[in-house]
Amino acid sequence: MTTTVTPERTPEPAPAPAPAGHRSSARRRRVYQWLFVAPAVLYLLAFFGFPLVRNILMSFQEYTPTTYFTGEAPFNGLDNWRAVFSNELFGDALWQTVLFTVGSLVGQFTIGLALAVFFTRRFPLSGAVRAVLLLPWLVPMVVSAVVWRRIMDEDHGVLNSFLETLGLSGGGVPWLSSPSVALLSAVLVNIWIGIPFNMVILYGGLQEIPREVHEAAALDGAGPWRTFRSVTLPMLRPVVTVVLVLGFMSTVKVLDLILALTGGGPADSTQTLGTMTYQLSFLQLDFGQGAVVGNVLILISAVFAVLYLRVNRANAGRGK
């Protein structure tokens, strides 16, 4: 019987400790890295972190104009939250915020994508036409709202005169004075304002798709619609995600447009969470309840911000 002797393995020597000079260099490098990041961190803490914490605390306080003179804002527990959630206007404002946001996003994205696809084809003065279409994005929102308020005036507005000329309206349409139409009018104006943003971002995404992919699809017999649906849209999905999420975060908190266009009326038919925050804080001077509605908006935006980051991370992982 043969006995196999397994040779003993010589233990590997422990790695030598890093020289003191190397450790000092790595520590110095980390300090330099934090010094470069420190201004951005301080900026975020001062202009985002502190207001956020202050707003959360305010929602649990009895914060009134007297507080600015006395400095006293006693905590009242969940009284502000109960008052807001039991307010009938909160439910209406939340629902109208959903309608306003979803309607705006669908209209902006659909028209913006159609224009982006249209401008991928070269034609004379295409650059000039694109520049003109960017104007709604460059004009301040309040100015746009004031102009559209004149355009949509029931008695003297250009829009009603144009519709009457075409025979599409026998009388003036109450665009901004009817509770059943005012929210739709606000959505249409916001769509007009948001189209350029969608068009520019989606146009940039379309330019990144290689032409060879479309040529290969054409050689396989795919028509324009089949190519767009099966090739272009899947490759454009990361850009679409960014456009929709950023569009949501900017639309859900719109305030100046609605204030300048309808003021939240008529009969609170265009009240959103943004305008309700303004009304509670600066008209009724109940800053605690206004902070509650503001926190609800912050929470909704935070959810979609997390969604945006996770989708971006997933897309980056697929890219690798």
Rank of each mutant, 00 (worst) to 15 (best):
A145H: 12
I209N: 03
V254G: 02
L246R: 01
N312W: 07
G319Q: 03
N87L: 06
M199Y: 03
F248P: 00
G294I: 01
L99C: 13
S24W: 09
L115F: 02
V245N: 03
A40C: 05
F248M: 04
S281N: 13
T165N: 15
F162H: 10
R82Y: 12
Q271S: 12
V5T: 14
L280K: 09
A38D: 04
V306D: 05
V53K: 02
L166F: 13
R54M: 05
E212Y: 10
G319P: 00
R23I: 04
S161G: 13
F118H: 03
L42R: 02
L159F: 15
L188H: 09
L285G: 09
A93F: 08
A131V: 06
R122P: 01
L105V: 02
S24R: 06
A182P: 05
V245I: 14
T165Y: 14
G194T: 10
L307W: 04
E12R: 06
F109W: 05
P11A: 06
F287D: 04
A83M: 04
F287R: 03
G91H: 14
F304I: 04
I201M: 14
A305G: 01
G171L: 15
F47H: 00
A38G: 08
L78S: 14
N312D: 08
L52V: 05
R237K: 10
L45N: 02
I195L: 11
A40Q: 01
G264A: 08
F123W: 01
F197M: 04
A16F: 04
T4E: 07
V213F: 05
F228K: 01
T120Q: 06
W225P: 09
N87M: 07
P210N: 05
S25Y: 07
P234Q: 04
L299Q: 02
V143T: 13
G265L: 15
P19A: 13
L206G: 00
L273R: 06
I209V: 14
M235V: 03
R226M: 12
R150I: 14
P136C: 04
L273T: 06
A93V: 09
T64Q: 11
N80Q: 00
F109R: 01
P234S: 09
G157T: 07
R150W: 15
V303L: 15
P140K: 01
F69V: 03
D79C: 04
E208G: 15
R9V: 15
K320T: 15
L176D: 10
F248E: 00
G167A: 08
S178T: 13
V242Y: 00
V292F: 03
Y32N: 10
K320R: 14
L244T: 05
W175F: 15
D286Q: 13
V181W: 11
F48C: 10
P51I: 07
G265H: 09
G71W: 12
V242N: 06
L299W: 07
V37N: 08
V158F: 14
A305V: 08
M141Y: 15
P266H: 10
S169Q: 06
G317N: 07
G71L: 03
L261P: 09
F248H: 03
L125T: 02
G77S: 09
I195T: 01
G205D: 01
A26G: 03
H22Q: 10
